[in-house]
């Protein structure tokens, strides 16, 4: 029994947070402009060709807080006649220069879109079939189970886990009631509903991590 990953989508259908645990294949970093800054350091496009820390997991999450500083803004314009280094799109360059140990074939922005697409379609299908406001809570394949918790304010918490786990909706609710409320909603530095930034911050990540690792389903 294990938990693979957590996605949070806001009401504008964009992924604002990502975290993974026992995931064998990390997604490829998103392409430039594919995702918002401050979603997850691990899958944010790297400004420079992958260096020594590409193999390890992400470094201090604090880095993501500064991602709107000059560094990122500079790489947002890869076409600009800058130093020769930036001529090719960074994502290409990175995978060729130093392929991370094991990533799935999909870039993160594509993956996030697919995850959102699948929950949206399934939910709408379920509503249309039943004709009532029926909740879609999870589905299971031979290799994983997807859990969904949707708040009335339009946030969607999605968690992927082992196919044999029980419903993890209560965990998603706990994340919403606990870390999300304390470190996102009540954090004046996190601009909610901005359409420009994710909600990643050090405390939220650490507390969510602690909460998930403390679960009995977590090995």
């Amino acid at each position: 029994m294990t938990i693979y990953s957590l996605y949070i989508f806001d009401r504008h259908c964009t992924c604002v947070y990502y975290q993974d645990w026992h995931r064998t294949k990390r997604p490829k970093p998103a392409v430039e402009g594919g995702i918002l800054p401050a979603v997850s350091h691990a899958i944010t496009p790297q400004p420079l060709p992958a260096d020594s820390n590409a193999g390890s997991t992400f470094t201090s999450p604090r880095n993501t807080l500064t991602s709107t500083s000059g560094v990122v803004i500079a790489v947002n314009e890869p076409i600009s006649p800058g130093p020769g280094l930036y001529q090719t799109p960074p994502s290409h360059q990175q995978t060729q220069a130093n392929p991370p140990p094991s990533t799935s074939g999909l870039a993160f922005d594509e993956e996030a879109k697919l995850v959102y697409g699948v929950i949206l379609s399934l939910r709408n299908m379920i509503k249309r079939i039943s004709g009532r406001d029926e909740q879609f809570t999870n589905y299971r394949t031979s290799t994983y189970k997807l859990h969904l918790y949707e708040t009335l304010s339009g946030y969607k918490f999605v968690m992927l886990s082992d196919p044999n786990t029980d419903s993890l909706r209560f965990v998603l609710r706990q994340i919403y009631n606990g870390p999300f409320l304390d470190f996102v909603v009540r954090n004046p530095l996190v601009i909610m509903d901005s359409k420009e930034r994710g909600i990643d911050n050090e405390y939220f990540r650490a507390n969510t991590d602690r909460l998930v690792k403390g679960l009995s389903v977590f090995p």
Binding site: T151, L152, S153, Y176, F180, L181, M192, D193
Partner: peptide, 15 residues
């Protein structure tokens, strides 16, 4: 816009 999240989390009411 923030208070509503607090409200929803604590009251656990439906639509």
């Amino acid at each position: 816009t923030r208070l509503i999240e607090d409200f929803l989390a604590r009251s656990a009411l439906g639509r």
